[in-house]
């Protein structure tokens, strides 16, 4: 269930205003929320731009639904939230122009 843990300030995965690579990996693997840094819930939320939603690949790490809604208001990573039960963590390849890891929701429940 969605927890109502408050966002930390700055958000856990954005310690200096922009996404921190190390924190993103930590969120992905230890399954903690990029907003508040505590254990994820179910469903898992992804926040992104409409392009990210369309190609189903996000740069921002997994979030609590409540944290995603709160972060959406800040405009830090886009205006769309997608809910999913699970996701794939995709590491960058050598030929990728954008060398950030991405997240691919694999069991989408719907938008939030």
């Amino acid at each position: 269930m969605t927890s109502s843990v408050p966002l930390t300030s700055p958000p856990f995965a954005w310690p200096h205003g922009s996404l921190d690579k190390g924190k993103v990996v930590q969120c992905a693997l230890s399954r903690v929320c990029g907003g508040c840094g505590t254990s994820l819930g179910r469903p898992i939320a992804f926040l992104g731009t409409t392009e990210e939603v369309d190609r189903n690949a996000f740069h921002a790490p997994p979030l609590h639904e409540a944290c995603a809604r709160a972060l959406r208001e800040t405009g830090i990573a886009g205006a769309s939230v997608v809910l999913t039960a699970g996701f794939e963590y995709v590491r960058p390849t050598a030929d990728a122009l954008d060398r950030r890891p991405t997240f691919v929701p694999n069991s989408i429940i719907g938008p939030a």
């Binding site: 179910r42 469903p43 039960a85 699970g86 996701f87």
Partner: peptide, 18 residues
């Protein structure tokens, strides 16, 4: 389960977060 191997099932119990 804690690795998220079964998260895609969307089972309330068999999930990495629970």
């Amino acid at each position: 389960v804690m690795h998220g191997q079964w998260d895609w099932m969307n089972d309330p119990e068999i999930h990495s977060s629970t």
